[in-house]
Each structure stands twice: as C-alpha cells, then as structure tokens.
Write a protein that binds this DNA or RNA. Sequence first.
DNA 1: ATTATCTTTTAGGCATGCCAAAATTAATAA
DNA 2: TTATTAATTTTGGCATGCCTAAAAGATAAT
Lengths: 218, 218
Amino acid sequence: MRTETVENYLKTIYNLSSDNTAVVTNQKLADKLNINPASVTEALRKLHELKYVVYEKSYGTRLTATGAKMAIDMVRRHRIWETYLAKELGFGWDEVHEIAEELEHVKNDKLINKLAELMGNPSFDPHGDPIPDAKGKFQKNKFVNLSEGKIKGAYKIMGVSDHSPVFLKYLEKHQLIIGAEVQVKNIEEVDGSLVVLCNKKEVIVSPKVAGNIIVAVK
Amino acid sequence: MRTETVENYLKTIYNLSSDNTAVVTNQKLADKLNINPASVTEALRKLHELKYVVYEKSYGTRLTATGAKMAIDMVRRHRIWETYLAKELGFGWDEVHEIAEELEHVKNDKLINKLAELMGNPSFDPHGDPIPDAKGKFQKNKFVNLSEGKIKGAYKIMGVSDHSPVFLKYLEKHQLIIGAEVQVKNIEEVDGSLVVLCNKKEVIVSPKVAGNIIVAVK
DNA sequence: ATTATCTTTTAGGCATGCCAAAATTAATAA
DNA sequence: TTATTAATTTTGGCATGCCTAAAAGATAAT
Ligand SMILES: [Mn+2]
Ligand SMILES: [Mn+2]
Ligand SMILES: [Mn+2]
Ligand SMILES: [Mn+2]
C-alpha cells in the first residue's frame, strides 16, 4: 500500500543514501522522521515485504528499483511544489519545505506536470537541489562545498544542504543566497572561519555554515 | 483533534444541512462519505465529545458554532483550490473536485489566502458555488432551479448542484456551462423535459438534468 | 577476551478509523 | 394497535502506525 507513511519512508531513505546505493541505518531514519527506532524496525519489515526496500536485520536498508522509482517521484513532487510556492506564490525559501511536505502527497501526476510545465520545467528547486523530470532523470551537478574554498577563490552559490528556516533566514540576512557570487578573502587560523566578500560586504562564515553552502568554482 | 477525518465529517455535515441548522441523518452521512453507518455513529460520538457537533442519538446531528466555523473553513479551502485548478492550471470543471478533496487538507491559511488573492478573491467556484471569504462570510445568492423554468422564460446558468464528472461532461457537451444564456422553448407534456435554446441550438433537457442546473431569471 | 556502550529488535500496548453481524429503536403499513 | 421494514447502535474485530521498556546484538575500549 502506498500510504503517506510509505511515501515518507521511501523519500527519506532516498535522501539519506545520497550516493545512490548506500545503506541507511535505522537510527538515521528514526532521527529524520522523528520516530522511535522500534517503529522504524517495524516499518522496514513491511517495506521489505512490499519489495520497496531490501532490509537486512541489524545491518541496514537500501531501496529496490521499485522503491527508488517511488522515492524519486516523491522528490520530484516535493521540489516542484517548493519551486512553485517560491516562484509563483512568493513564499520565502525558508517557508516552502514545510508546506511541500504536505502537498507532495497529493496523488495527481497531471497536477505536478502542469505546475512544472507552467514554470518551464525547472531543473533546480529554491534550495538548489535538482528536480528529476517526469521520467525520473536528473541533471547531475558537480559542485563543491564552500568549506573547501581557498583564499582568493571566487565561487557562486548554487545550493544549500541545510533546509531549516533558521539557517535559511540567516543566509538571507547576509545575502548569501542562490546565485550570489562570493570571494574568499581570508581563512581564520583560529577556527577555520571564512572571511568572504559578498555583495561588496565582508561576511564571516563559520565552518558549520560554510559546510552547508554548495558552490560552483568560478 | 483536527484530523483529515474530522475535517471531512464537518464539511460533509455542513454540505448536507444546506439550510443552515437542519439536522443531518447518519444514513446520509454514511452515503456521502462512503462509510459504514456503524462507523458514522462512532465518529459522531467523538465529534460530539469534541464539541464540534450536537449529536442526539437516533435523531440526528448539527454543527456547533465551532464546528460550523471549521466546516466553512474547509468549504473555503475546497472551493479556492477548485477555482485555482480550473482558472490558473486549466483543469476542467469535471476534474477539479477530486483533486481539491486532497488539497483542502493542507494546513496553511497563508497558502489559501495567497491563492485567493492571486485570483482577485473570487466569490464563486467553477460549479457556481459561493466561496466564503477569510472571515467565513459568503455572498448569498438567490437563484432558482432550471426545472422551475417556464415556457418562453430566459435564464442564465449560474451553477450546478451535481458535481460528478459524468454530469459535468454532459453539460459541457451541450454548452450548458456557467454563464450560458438559455431560453425555454417548450416543456414536453410526456416527461416534463425542457426544450431550451442555448447558443442558437436546441437542446432537450431532462427533468433530472434540469433539476441540477441553477439559474438566474433574466 | 571482557566489559561498557550504543544500536536494533522484541514484546506488549494504545489510539484512530474502519467493518460485519447482531440487537435495538423508530417509522410505516396493515 | 400490531406487524413489518428501515435506520441506528452495540459488540467484537481488524489494520495501520505509533510508543515504552526490556532483551539481544554489534562495536569499541581496556
Ligand atoms: Mn511527506
Ligand atoms: Mn528543496
Ligand atoms: Mn476531504
Ligand atoms: Mn465546487
């Protein structure tokens, strides 16, 4: 059964096993889904039954081909809705995730495809994440982390890996938004903070923050 | 708890007790919700507990003020989404209801208000039903049924009371759509069918169909 | 190799929503 | 009014998803 719960599990497994086939632990799933580990065990048993995942006891879980297809479908829906909310309805990039968490479960492919078409089939969502097309194909990007930035290096912000409102509002306050061009002026010895020039202003970016900013080398 | 189930019950009770305070029977609820009458009894007991309805055993149910407020909120969401799907995304009036059944449950007032605003706060949905504003106020209309039409009478179609795709597609085929102007040429003695002129074509409208077309007298 | 720690699983429960069958109540007809 | 029919409620069950506490398994440290 493709319940909302199943959809959420599959999507989350997919997001946690970033580099395709990596195995996901129960703990990480429990954390991400805000659910007790015992409940995760149960759920995985069922998902295994349904052939959506391969679940090996006390080892970990990975998606089957069927599961991956469903997961990618969810990712598409989520990101299309996020993009729509931001681009067409004027929601902030810190607001869209939560609403998309609900909208993604509306069962109507035509709806998603119409929204996508209306926006010219965008390839990236407001956080810079790639949007799979209707067939599940993505544009794979090869960006790096700002924390790998070098002194005098010039970069362009392409995405973020932390989607929490707190983080996103913080970035916005300093104009560290998608598309912004930044230059690394210095890297502090003490704590590894980056002093970057962004929009003609100097901003100090902590390693933690830098680690969640995805950039292209210019 | 305001679950999806609760929202559906309240909305349905509201829709079934058309003339405000009319009592709704379990049977009608069971039919509309496609649920076993036994389940309806249980649900109503809980809704009564929650003070959303006044439920009197073996007699019937009506909404409390609190329940009515929630119901009207649901009606607003449903109709805003229907209008949005039709006007902005190009869905047919026969397609929008089903999708809106799901979208109406997304918990975000800002979203609904943005959609409404974007469309200029419409007062009627694609079926001619009035859309309550954010405060729950509607424009009460005083239309009549086409089945009450008189020979030589001229009318304008303002709405429909059957929202099923079959019915709506049938109407569309004969151009009997909202805004269309019709003139009653004759009423057949045999079965009460109306012969109406619509878009310069004669159409025979059965009593059953006419009974689901809402018109304004011109 | 053994202990301590952390993760996962099992066992036993609970809430929500639904159903079918039987019992009760209400409404209608005779 | 009494019998028949129809609507409602009660009873006992079931599936889904979640939880806590206890048991078992895996990992890491001494
Ligand atoms: Mn979700
Ligand atoms: Mn995103
Ligand atoms: Mn609904
Ligand atoms: Mn409608």
